[in-house]
Design a protein around this nucleic acid. Structure first.
Lengths: 136, 136
DNA sequence: CGGAATCCTCGACGATACTG
DNA sequence: CAGTATCGTCGAGGATTCCG
């Protein structure tokens, strides 16, 4: 019996983990953004817009509806028509998402340059090591 | 040759995707939060605190350092000692992350109740279908 | 202590086909 | 059109071992 299980030392990490596992995945975020932008979209509109498979779209939409972020309006016409939109909760979720988006927009260049610098440094170090090895 | 590739209709989705694939994963977020809270942490402190495997911690830290969010301070003592902390960029990233955290804290209850309601509804629908089938 | 290297599992996700 | 059902893969990530 492993009493030494780690399971995360900090309890709040578990909460954050829970949140992220609910609405933190890529497709959920993209769907919320799309719906926030276009107000209301049909199934295939979302599909084409995001380049997502029917399967993932279907699954993700159901989860979002279940979590109360997305409203699903089914019109029993022929052919059938289903419209998706954000609920108030969904719109409130869009706020922090938007904040992340702005940060990203502003800081992607910083990340890129940091990355370039890091890679250049790594490359230099590696070459230095190669030289050292050769002289040995 | 598939000229009918979908690849996402909207270009901005690609950008968002890129951002999320960089710093949007679970461990990156948790590490940033931990470092924002404790200022500076050693490798094994982070490991124990988060309940993460060495492998993922090592990989994720390297990526975060590469992206310029995390600063790594190596002390060549015996035994070695490595301290991790946030850079300015990392701290700025913590702002939107914090916003997400607050939203989550505030709205997890809403999500939970929405989920319960949804599940109850589903269960009711399923039973109704079962009855209808029986009477058929 | 702070990693790197290797192996292996398991679940997320896409492709495809079928239904109402 | 808007899904559901089934199958296959592929890579994220844990466990383990070794090293400076």
């Amino acid at each position: 019996m492993r009493t030494d299980k780690k399971e995360a030392g900090c309890p709040e990490c578990l909460r954050i983990n829970e949140v992220l596992s609910r609405v933190g995945d890529r497709w959920s975020v993209l769907i919320v953004i799309s719906l926030a932008t276009y107000e209301v979209l049909r199934f295939n509109e979302l599909k084409r817009h995001l380049g997502i498979s029917q399967r993932m779209l279907s699954l993700t939409l159901r989860e979002l509806e279940r979590d109360g972020l997305v409203h699903r309006e089914y019109h029993p016409t022929i052919p059938p028509k289903v419209e998706y939109s954000l609920t108030d909760l969904g719109r409130s979720f869009y706020e922090p998402v938007k904040a992340m988006g702005y940060w990203a927009l502003e800081n992607l260049p910083n990340i890129d340059s940091a990355r370039s610098a890091y890679d250049a440094q790594q490359e230099a170090t590696k070459e230095a090591q190669a030289v050292a090895k050769k002289s040995a």
